[in-house]
Simulated scan of single mutants.
Amino acid sequence: MNQISFFFVTFMRVLLLAGLGAMTMLVGCATSPYAEVWHKKPRLTGPSGPEPLATAEQSLTRAIHDERTKPLIAMGECLDGLQSASDELKRNPRDATANRDYNFGVSRIFQIIHDTNLDPWTQPLIVPTTNGEFVLTFKPDPRPEWNPALYDFTPADEFDVGGKYVTERITRDGIGAPIVAVEREESKNARGKAAPSRIYRTVSAVAKFQGRRCMLEFYDPLDSETARFYGRTVPLAADFTVPLAVMLQETDPGKHEVWRVLNPEKYAYTARIERLQPYNPNKTVVLVIHGLKDSQATWTPMINKLRGDPLIRKHYQFWFYSYPSGYP
């Protein structure tokens, strides 16, 4: 082998090793977690309230303890405690302890429904208690996509979140329980509706009592800054980050980033436009597009931050375009 050939072969080997090393780094980056979600046991924080809130808090604590073994009894304890907190909040909407207990109680309704498969969505749920029956139901919405039977609901206070793209938790104080709503089944016509194959939504739930009847009402906190609460307009509580984090962890868009560069034809089917919230014709669509060896996940920190701004929420909605970035 002459000297020129030797150097050529050596040079090609160096290039090959460098390429393999770079590819390993790319794959390693692609598999690092963009979002991490941990379940936690929710609990009331802060000092106990005065009566009747102290008794209400005890009922809510018992409900958490009993939910797995005696779900209907647990739901009754939850509704007893929630009604007491609701009555106090009606009397004094600025009572921070009553607000805390109320939001915690609404969240526990959804915790019990989620953990025990109780179903107040297909028909009103009769809940026996020592003080008489409660009826648990919901306020219907004419929009088909707001049918609660289509979703699994998990209270946002059951999650801690983190990860590369989830470094800040954006919330809003107010009345109501921030909820993560995940569509039970994948949509058969998601692409035609510019929707994800499975919807992950941020929802805020408010409970109102009419005697022994408890009605749950759902709000989209990206569209509503306030809620109606017994004749008053009050700030609506929200958690804008947890649904994004859950969606990122469940869908894991980073898993195909490298391969969509190397073999774009194979992943051509992944090219699509998707919206992150129900379409609102009164808001301007902001379409975000990622770059080479990337995915829609790259926009998560920006979208998470911007959703915390009420003016942005009022005027804009975010969609993304994702595609195999290996195409020239």
Rank of each mutant, 00 (worst) to 15 (best):
M75L: 09
T171H: 03
R169I: 01
P155E: 06
E145R: 14
K139N: 12
P47N: 05
L82K: 11
H114C: 06
D119V: 05
D173V: 09
W121N: 01
P140F: 00
T129G: 00
E145G: 07
D173Y: 09
F134K: 10
D80F: 06
A156L: 00
I73L: 15
K139Q: 14
D173Q: 14
K164D: 12
T129D: 06
F159G: 06
W121P: 02
I73N: 14
T55P: 02
L125A: 07
I126M: 13
E158D: 11
R172A: 08
F110R: 08
D119A: 05
G76V: 03
Y102R: 08
D87Y: 10
P50S: 07
N99Q: 15
Q83L: 09
L60P: 01
T154S: 11
L60Y: 05
L125V: 04
Q83P: 07
A85W: 02
N147T: 08
L72E: 08
A96Y: 10
D141F: 02
L89C: 02
L79C: 04
S59N: 15
L53M: 06
G49Y: 01
V161Y: 07
D157A: 12
I112V: 08
D152H: 13
T61G: 06
G49M: 04
K70N: 15
A56P: 00
A96L: 13
I112R: 10
A63V: 02
